[in-house]
Amino acid sequence: MDGDIAPLQEICCLASRYGALVFVDECHATGFLGPTGRGTDELLGVMDQVTIINSTLGKALGGASGGYTTGPGPLVSLLRQRARPYLFSNSLPPAVVGCASKALDLLMGSNTIVQSMAAKTQRFRSKMEAAGFTISGASHPICPVMLGDARLASRMADDMLKRGIFVIGFSYPVVPKGKARIRVQISAVHSEEDIDRCVEAFVEVGRLHGALP
């Protein structure tokens, strides 16, 4: 929600010290974090120290549905016997599986998409900060534009939509009180022109509502 990156290196050190296994939910990392998009563990160089990874097919890998858990064979067997979401869910449609499989093929075949995402994210964050906005998180494609006021976030999001930019205002109880924001998510299909037009719209709307001088 905040575009932050977990301190996974420190977590892995603690796990090693106390004989624990590391489980990571990578739903907001799979497909774009790390040199080849494998996630936070690749980004921070601890792939060999993470035992269990849970992620989704519903975000970066095509925006479809479903998810997965990877880990040791005995764990996977246990989940197949005991995990209620697995036992009581229908199988994914073949088209969804095909889409997700192709997305993984594209990521494994080249790091062009990942590099493009990183460049576009940096472009948006730097231009927004130069304009005077506060962007939460650390170089993550989820870019929360921090506004603080729930009404302001809602009204600005509505005016952004009028300008052809679809963003959502988040406020309490989805986020803590006083932490209202508009969350922007950079996509690989966005062009540099799209990024610049979005920033221009934010500046225009921000000045209209007094969020910028």
Rank of each mutant, 00 (worst) to 15 (best):
T56R: 02
L57Q: 03
K59W: 12
A64V: 10
A64W: 04
G66M: 00
G67R: 06
Y68Q: 02
Y68F: 13
Y68K: 03
T69I: 14
T70Y: 03
T70C: 07
G73V: 12
G73H: 08
L75A: 09
V76H: 04
S77G: 10
L78E: 09
L78G: 05
L78R: 11
L79K: 01
Q81T: 14
R82N: 07
R84L: 14
P85A: 08
Y86Q: 02
L87V: 11
N90D: 15
N90R: 15
L92K: 02
L92T: 02
L92H: 01
V96R: 01
V96N: 00
V96K: 01
V97Y: 00
C99A: 14
S101N: 09
D105Q: 15
L106K: 12
N111S: 07
T112I: 08
Q115C: 11
S116F: 11
M117V: 12
A119P: 05
K120S: 01
T121N: 10
K127S: 12
M128L: 04
M128N: 00
M128F: 00
A131P: 00
A131R: 00
F133V: 02
F133K: 01
S136I: 08
G137R: 04
G137V: 08
S139H: 07
S139I: 05
H140D: 04
I142V: 15
C143D: 03
G148R: 07
D149L: 06
R151D: 13
R151T: 13
R151Q: 13
R151W: 11
L152K: 15
L152A: 15
R155Y: 06
D158R: 13
D159A: 14
